[in-house]
Design a protein around this nucleic acid. Sequence first.
DNA 1: GTCTATATACTGATAGAC
DNA 2: GTCTATCAGTATATAGAC
Lengths: 185, 185
Amino acid sequence: MDTAERLIRSTQELLWDRGYVGTSPKAIQHHAQAGQGSMYHHFTGKPDLALAAIRRNAEELRAETEAILSAEGTAAEKISAYLHRKREVLRGCRIGRLAEDPEVMASDELRQPIQETFEWLHSRLSTLLAEGKERGEFSDTLDPEAVAAMLAAVVQGGYVLARAAGSEEPFARAIDGALDLLLSS
Amino acid sequence: MDTAERLIRSTQELLWDRGYVGTSPKAIQHHAQAGQGSMYHHFTGKPDLALAAIRRNAEELRAETEAILSAEGTAAEKISAYLHRKREVLRGCRIGRLAEDPEVMASDELRQPIQETFEWLHSRLSTLLAEGKERGEFSDTLDPEAVAAMLAAVVQGGYVLARAAGSEEPFARAIDGALDLLLSS
DNA sequence: GTCTATATACTGATAGAC
DNA sequence: GTCTATCAGTATATAGAC
């Protein structure tokens, strides 16, 4: 793996665990085993490298999610698979956590991949819900747009509750609560 | 207002907007119009002052929430009032955002008020749901613990989606989705 | 209680040698 | 491409005068 690639991957990990404000160039260089000079040769600075890493994290998250949502099954099965997907719950969401970072939110360029990822997810979930509703899997009164937002929020909020508790349990409970209501509605 | 009080209130605001990692003693002093010496006279350092500010933010959030949940009305009305409560959506949650801060999560002392606040909220919501269920307001199959976690998660995740979008809309949609399912279940 | 001086380490970068 | 040197500014304090 070349140096530029190691720098991007190291930054992906550090942004996931510490956010943008909490990640220094020095920490990135150390993690990537690259020198100061290498980093500034391949990237113009911290924002440039962070942007590459955020985009990569977004692409990877989207690909992993799409693999689950496009698998065989009913809409209800896909939604359930998405909610019960294998996750490092206590680590949080590599994309959602950046929505709490003041410098990411202050930069249109850094915020864009975050915004687009959630727009994509919302669109994907709401299409799926509409198809399931069409096939009679869900209540006739179900609002796909609202329920899609609710499902995305439950996952993001589940991470927050779990981290606050130091336990995966609140995440699992929140998912259960959402799925119970959706499937019994 | 005395200096110690100004320092605490300034730190409350800065932690809300920038988190612990993103807030420096210098920024606090400037916001509170207090000198370096004053800050270190009243508090032993940044963690000590932050702890006071986090506890204060937790107390205030809890008091505001309790006022809504203990008002007159059915369980469903109280839950709806809680979800539709006046919020600075794009600013995020003054407590939940700290669950994404690496240094707060690394310190048992700083994390404790965050953990306790969500434990209190979960307990309060789940009691309310159980009472409502008892009175026939909700489905017989409703699981109060799971739905309470789901509701807390929707609020926290709603903040994340709204900040990512730069718009309050996703928050409102997520709340609508949760409430629709709860009340039609 | 508040102020100024001082201190060590880190942040985020630039410059130029190799 | 990578390395070392250097830099202005900040982070997080401590010490001692007033």
